[in-house]
Amino acid sequence: MGVTLIMLAIKLNRFLTFDPIYLVGQRREWLVGPREIAHLIGIAGCTVGGWYFISSFASKLLICWNLALTVAFVVGVASMGPESQWLYDAFGITPLELYVNLSTIYLGAWIWLALTAWAVPNMLRFRPALIISCIFMVVTIGLWELYTQPFVHVYDGPARGWIQASQVACDLLGVLVGALLVLFTNYQARRP
């Protein structure tokens, strides 16, 4: 479900169009458009995906499943070639960019979770995994939206110089939506 929401967000960011609206007054910091909506959905997907990834390290079967998916991802990206046009058309990134951006994060997460599974296995249970996923997302949002973009850089361009409050609000709402989706699906799965 997490990956599906992330892919939906990427598609919405590219193809959803509507006139942006102001949430508060007429200030650019509170302007909400298609990108903010895509962020809300994508961050919800990241929260769900993060929870699944973290909690999956509590089971040897799911660790093997993750390893198989990792190998399939690496082989799939490698087989596309460096200039796969369909990936760029669909998501605006090349296979090499996808591989480089995701592999370092994924490798770091694997090492951290393997150590956590060994040292503190209770952290990988349902609720702690959800809390860790939410905290990770909030910290990432804070670093990116409250420090990096206003003061360091915005992707390849200069720093924005101001905090995009609507983006922060949509991102935090996305964390909440993702957590609620995890709780709801877990509740539904446990019902008789």
Rank of each mutant, 00 (worst) to 15 (best):
A189E: 09
S166G: 13
S166W: 14
T104G: 02
V75C: 11
I111D: 07
F136K: 04
W110T: 08
C64L: 01
I6W: 09
L96W: 11
N101R: 12
R14Y: 02
E97H: 12
S59D: 11
S166C: 05
F151S: 11
L130M: 12
Y88M: 01
L12C: 01
N186M: 05
I43A: 02
V71S: 04
I93T: 14
S79A: 13
F126Q: 07
E36F: 09
H153M: 07
I63T: 10
F151K: 03
M7V: 10
W144E: 06
G45F: 12
P121F: 10
N13Y: 08
I111T: 06
V74P: 15
C134R: 07
G174P: 15
V77Y: 13
W51Y: 13
E29M: 00
V182W: 11
F91S: 10
V71Q: 06
D19W: 06
C64V: 08
R27G: 03
Y22N: 03
R127C: 01
A38S: 15
T140E: 14
T185P: 03
I105G: 10
C46A: 14
L98E: 04
D171Y: 02
F57M: 01
F15H: 15
L181T: 00
A90T: 02
G50V: 03
V175I: 15
Q164E: 12
M123E: 04
G45T: 03
P121A: 11
L40V: 00
P20E: 03
L12P: 05
V182H: 15
L98Y: 13
I63E: 06
I163V: 15
P82W: 05
V75R: 01
A44G: 07
W162P: 02
K60D: 06
S84F: 12
V154E: 11
I41T: 08
G161F: 03
Q85I: 07
H39T: 10
E83I: 05
T94D: 01
